[in-house]
Design a protein around this nucleic acid. Structure first.
Lengths: 106, 106
DNA sequence: GGAACAGGTTACAACATTGTTACAAAAAAA
DNA sequence: TTTTTTTGTAACAATGTTGTAACCTGTTCC
């Protein structure tokens, strides 16, 4: 593997390792439908600032599309791209492990 | 799900989201054999401090066992526990996605 | 007129994390 | 005798990240 590819790998791992990132990707797939900002924020239980930053980073990486509607008040829908959906089986299996482990810890 | 379980889930997600954590777990499974500190450090390309901190956190969570041998100089082997091995399929599939994406980005 | 709504942005202070450097131990090799 | 080796730890400065609070748009409701 060349240096350039390594940089891309690192970049993706850093992206995925940011706080709340795995949760955002996971919950966005559960409904399999475009989600509103407020709903994502509520489900991941984080500040607007952080959710907005994460969604921006996902959009920059082509993993999420953002669609704004000129309603009042504003409506914005976020949706996973095909590339992001390809990651979902791993995420589901990872969350299964996490949830299982959290249960056993009680 | 109760509050206590949520806390455990968050705890695990925070753990997995720490820098280099996914890489450490992934490379430790590739060889399927106990690995030395220096080898892990070399493979993940990080400072001793960070690698030591991560391995300590993994040990605290029961995902890695540490075995020290009284040789000179010191020899220490790290090994994934069964619990950590159960996470490997997800990790492998996630890294497959990451590597594939890094390739396509070239 | 003023409040309320969704979906943010900005600035900033507080907090968390990182790498660097120095250090350790104990025996063997130079 | 000095250096080398492995596997760390401690302290610290630099850097990165987070939440909070304030603010913004533009329309409808009271």
């Amino acid at each position: 593997m060349c240096e350039s590819a390594k940089a891309h790998v690192d970049d993706l791992l850093v992206l995925l390792s940011k706080s709340k990132m795995l949760s955002i990707l996971y919950i966005m797939n559960c409904d399999k439908e475009p989600m509103r900002f407020s709903m994502i924020k509520k489900r991941v239980n984080s500040s607007s600032t952080t959710v907005a930053r994460r969604l921006g980073e996902l959009e920059d990486h082509g993993l999420v599309t953002r669609t704004a509607f000129a309603t009042v008040p504003a409506t914005v829908m976020y949706e996973l791209t095909e590339d992001a959906i390809a990651l979902q089986p791993s995420l589901e299996s990872m969350f299964e492990w996490v949830l299982n482990r959290a249960d056993n810890a009680l």
